[in-house]
């Protein structure tokens, strides 16, 4: 167990280091955007005088390293400062949106992960059967269509016919069943988009193991095909599957802006796009940091979990 703790500590330290590097990259990248916040806020109505006045008000005249340090120390304490455009605390702006994004990601994952695992295992079990081919073809077609196309098809079939709303309206008082009902179409869209990847990885990992001598042994012992897959092959196939699931979860948190736009879902992606367009640098940085943290944390978790499923890796650590 000791070795595991050391490994986790190492991974955490590496993760933290990655985040620091990412924070520097994020900060520099937003500096490179053309135009600045003052001109973005005023837009067509900017005049040199109003621009200068607004720039001074927003503190845009400080040198970059000073602003970076102030931002980083604030962010470490959970204080991302106030939005440059609206003067609202960024933590407040992000809180509800982050909640919405996590809700949608978990909803989609709750549909997609079991579906992918079951389909993947069955496809491996009955490989090259009609079922295998249909499942593969279906999943690959779903992933090949652009997200917005799938979304519009679902709107056409399920929203315009009156089964589900085409627009998600979440308020703090929306009840949980209502939330599930209203968010069903975006969750289904995302499910269709991410299932193929996980399903095919499950199938491939299991099939890969089926050629191993110990599976042959199990078969010679007379174990049933289902038992061979679930008891003998699956535990050894978990490492790659966990990694793919983690990657897809991270995608569900960070990459769903198109789906948010189509279903008017108030998530983090839309906030990020708005903020980039308005050069609301403070908000962009905060969200980028959250996205980076989601990737780092999920990959970290995947690393740890896949190590735990494989005693050989733990011994080496």
């Amino acid at each position: 167990m000791h070795a595991v703790l050391i490994m986790i500590a190492q991974r955490l330290a590496l993760g933290a280091l990655t985040l620091i590097v990412v924070s520097i990259v994020i900060f520099s990248a937003t500096e490179l955007l053309p135009g600045d916040l003052a001109s973005a806020i005023l837009g067509q109505s900017a005049t040199p005088e109003t621009l200068a006045a607004l720039r001074a008000q927003l503190g845009l005249n400080d040198p970059a390293p000073v602003r970076y340090w102030a931002w980083l120390t604030g962010a470490l304490q959970g204080d991302f400062g106030v939005s440059l455009a609206t003067r609202r605390p960024i933590a407040d702006m992000i809180e509800q949106r982050l909640g919405n994004t996590l809700f949608l990601a978990l909803y989609a994952a709750a549909l997609a992960v079991p579906l992918a695992l079951v389909l993947g295992i069955l496809a491996a079990l009955w490989r090259n059967s009609i079922f295998d081919r249909v499942a593969n073809a279906g999943a690959l077609s779903a992933i090949s269509f652009p997200e917005f196309f799938i979304a519009y098809i679902l709107v056409l079939w399920l929203a315009q016919t009156g089964y589900f709303p085409s627009m998600v309206r979440l308020t703090p008082v929306t009840s949980f069943p209502d939330k599930l009902y209203m968010s069903f179409l975006p969750a289904l869209t995302l499910t269709l988009v991410v299932t193929a990847h996980m399903m095919r990885m499950t199938r491939a990992a299991i099939i890969n193991l089926m050629a191993q001598p110990y599976i042959e042994m199990a078969r010679l012992k007379g174990a049933s095909p289902l038992r061979i897959v679930l008891r003998h092959a699956l535990p050894n196939a978990l490492a790659p599957i966990i990694n793919v699931i983690a990657l897809n979860l991270a995608y569900l948190i960070t990459g769903v802006v198109v789906v948010e736009v189509v279903f008017v879902y108030p998530g983090l992606g839309q906030l990020m796009v708005d903020s980039v367009a308005k050069r609301d640098i403070a908000v962009v940085q905060a969200i980028a940091l959250i996205f980076a943290s989601a990737y780092v944390l999920l990959n970290l978790t995947a690393d740890v979990l896949s190590t735990l499923t494989n005693p050989r890796l733990m011994k080496r650590g």
Binding site: M167, V262, F263
Partner: peptide, 19 residues
């Protein structure tokens, strides 16, 4: 008052009775 920036989403919202 709802912000629906995407024009297709706006049209869908009207046609499905969302607005």
């Amino acid at each position: 008052i709802l912000s629906i920036v995407d024009s297709t989403a706006r049209l869908n919202a009207l046609m499905t009775g969302g607005v």
